[in-house]
Nucleic acid binder design. Structure first.
Lengths: 187, 187
DNA sequence: AGTAAAATTTAACATAAGATAAATAATCAG
DNA sequence: CTGATTATTTATCTTATGTTAAATTTTACT
């Protein structure tokens, strides 16, 4: 749990009681490489913290698999479009490496909000930051060329190439594998 | 204020006291068509509710103006990438029509969060919903053709064509005016 | 109403990225 | 270690969208 508390502290420091309450709704999960952590069609009721490994959210558009995002160590991953609406998710979470996670039951978490405003505040801030990231991502996709987006990704996550197959990176960048290969070939 | 309270009720109903407290940090603003409500370079410290009119957020990329989003009646608009980070915004808010707004001072609002957890919860839910919209927008831009995106926009906001110049719509869709005109010409 | 300015469309050409297929390289299971 | 599978690259051709410029339509101002 230490890594998780450290992560929380970046957003909002919690009282001992709040930490205890959260601990009780967390449980460790280990997942092997390429396994789905959450499958398509179910409503998202878990928020995951990544202690070790890499995760990605993916979905299908016209039978083609699209990677929506990646998450690495010391980050949270959840299918928010389901978590915040209660609707079944069209997306899945898959582990790209053998991974250690902490699963936080979101139903119980949201119940804790009533007793612990500090926990509500913590997650408000976590998701506000994620919201900002997503707004910036819209901008990146909307008006940067595929090559610019590739270079930006390399700058922001220099190790992504070592850890994530190119086919996942391509759809994340909004292009085909072939285009990505072409862009990489230029230099 | 009635419209604003009705809007709030869709997310979280507030006590009389909370409503009173919010009312005190709100003030009406009237802006003429084409005027900037907020300019580039300042930190966002206001959340606006649109009673009447249309707003858009825009910014510049390589000296070309890009529309990030539109907002119509009974919606909230804010430059969240600045609001939630405290950094100056590279974006401006402009009114597309003569408009009536309610300005909510965000510094004072965030202070109210300490006294009124119900207000914190209200805005948490408002921005969670906005976050979900943004996630869906990434998907829309990432893997739909310009024509699909245009048709989706028409379906979601049928009156957008009557109220918003095409040049704004083009950059919102991530294409040039010329491309948009071509797409429209097909039918 | 009449003119200037702005918005939109049309046209011609250029280019980035898609589609398909085949070749090569890397990974994995036994 | 070897063969089979999967990932990546390369090649060719196609297509959607970008770029620039000009024509037309609409809007705004006096």
């Amino acid at each position: 749990m230490n890594e998780l508390i450290t992560y929380f502290n970046k957003y909002n420091t919690l009282s001992e009681n709040a930490i205890k309450a959260i601990s009780e709704i967390c449980k460790p999960v280990n997942i092997k490489k390429n396994q789905d952590l959450q499958t398509i069609g179910h409503t998202c009721r878990t928020i995951y913290f990544i202690k070790k490994g890499v995760a990605r959210i993916y979905y299908y558009k016209d039978d083609i698999e699209i990677t929506e995002c990646f998450a690495f160590e010391n980050a949270i991953i959840a299918r928010v479009e389901s978590l915040f609406t209660g609707k079944p998710s069209r997306k899945a979470i898959q582990m790209v490496e053998n991974s250690e996670l902490i699963a936080i039951n979101s139903t119980k978490l949201f119940d804790l909000y009533d007793t612990f405003p500090e926990i509500e505040r913590l997650f408000r801030k976590i998701f506000e930051a994620a919201y900002v990231d997503t707004v910036n991502r819209v901008e990146s996709i909307q008006f940067h060329s595929a090559e610019e987006r590739y270079n930006t990704l390399l700058k922001e996550s220099p190790n992504v190439l070592q850890r994530v197959p190119l086919k996942f990176i391509a759809s994340y960048l909004g292009i085909t594998q072939v285009s990505l290969s072409r862009i990489r070939g230029i230099r």
